[in-house]
Design a protein around this nucleic acid. Structure first.
Lengths: 242, 242
DNA sequence: GCATGCGCTTGATTATTATCAAGCGTATAA
DNA sequence: TTATACGCTTGATAATAATCAAGCGCATGC
């Protein structure tokens, strides 16, 4: 059901790398890739979790809340899995998902994932690692929300984005600013003001491009903390020695 | 190493119920129960996660941050497991832990947990479920923080506490108010004011006791949302049909 | 008893964030 | 081109939360 070039790519994903060939086959045979236009809602919170989703191309926003109040919980880019937890314990989604640009999404039936977890120890182990990572990422987000102001969250987001984009000091905000605002837990108006706040702390803004002109100043303001800001890394192949 | 009456109790814990006898033996033989006085710090964030912790008696607070800014991330009561995720991928703790009253803590060496996960599929499955639950709980917390005001979080906390304590409308706040404030993401001063705010919405406060005198009024103010406020339940024994 | 400490509350002030309202600039379509 | 829409920004104001300061009440210990 899924194309060979996609299959190879998905197989690289850590979640699928250590499972058996049988497991992977059950996914490629029953899963399917679908291309969605920008702005399409893939599912809504409170719906039963019928599929595990994998972003092969494009960008997906996970959000939650009613019309009145809505917040972005995560932005998922290739190659990334989302809503694994809801799939595993056969629950409803806690988050809604929409595409931020045209996106290719691999959808794997939830029951196949649950079955594979029970029959394939290698896959079960990969699931544990992926879940532990997601959990720790969310704890970090929660710490950031509870311990920092909006401008501080933005400053640390910029430092992180710079690292992800090569550390050149030239950052391209690849999502709409209002989405970034929601991701950081503030209104679009306040994001604008937060950027202004950061100007004296070593950044220059031009539309969707941000330049870190004095990294030391920005770092001093942001006071990054590895236990909040460092990305959750995949565990090393072997056990790290201590 | 651990006393028989404790062993039986721990075996009941869902995390340990479906594992093999061998797995459980490896835990009871190498794990140990220790009694800590009130206010004792069990570990600090950024330390390597050497033990999986189980609260057998007492209360444990998970918190994070520096001296200047600190926040409570969770309160764990018997019988509850904590910091499973850090143990699994052999990482440092993202949270610190301290006892809020004299507490009995079972500590299981991290390497035993990781070894059991690799050899015991039943235990691996239980770990997956426990992790998925923790993750979804944290997502709910994050949604609450981003979407609600302090008074709303308090109102929903009261509704939840009432349910947990039998639904009599008589709630006993079993922790210090300043800890509750931190758990809800506000200062102690603001918690006091949040209680005052709720008085016209159907509650009466007397020290550490809160009475919900007009449940409908409190519910109207709180606007509880199952996708934020309902506790994460253990999945039913079989697969829920749909 | 009396003093002390400490958690809690309340008031005053400040900081932070949201809301409401306008206007600017760019992209898109007629 | 012109009109329109929309994202973004800025200003003014309001809501929410934190900080600083004082005092109250209760427990503990002398």
């Amino acid at each position: 059901m899924i194309r060979p070039e996609n299959a190879a790519e998905v197989r690289q994903l850590e979640l699928f790398a250590t499972g058996s060939e049988t497991t992977f086959l059950s996914f490629t045979e029953t899963g399917f890739v679908q291309r969605f236009p920008r702005g399409m809602v893939l599912f809504r919170e409170n719906e039963p979790a019928d599929f595990l989703h994998v972003v092969l191309g494009g960008t997906v926003e996970l959000f939650a809340g009613s019309d009145k109040r809505e917040t972005t919980l995560d932005i998922v880019r290739p190659v990334g899995v989302f809503i694994l937890a809801a799939v595993l314990n056969d629950e409803v989604y806690l988050q809604s998902a929409r595409t931020l640009e045209p996106s290719d999404i691999l959808m794997i039936p939830a029951e196949k994932v649950r079955a594979a977890m029970d029959t394939d120890p290698g896959f079960a182990r990969a699931i544990v690692m992926e879940l532990a990572r997601s959990y720790r990422r969310t704890i970090k987000d929660l710490k950031g929300m509870k311990l920092r102001t909006g401008a501080e969250r933005l400053a640390n987001w910029l430092l992180r984005a710079d690292k992800e984009q090569g550390g050149t000091g030239e950052i391209d905000i690849r999502i709409e600013k209002r989405t970034l605002a929601s991701r950081l837990g503030m209104t679009p108006e306040n994001l604008s003001r937060a950027f202004s706040t950061l100007r004296p702390h070593g950044i220059e803004i031009d539309g969707s491009r941000v330049e870190i002109v004095r990294p030391d100043a920005l770092i001093a303001f942001a006071a990054p903390d590895p236990l909040v800001d460092d990305p959750e890394v995949s565990p090393p192949a072997g056990r790290p020695g201590r």
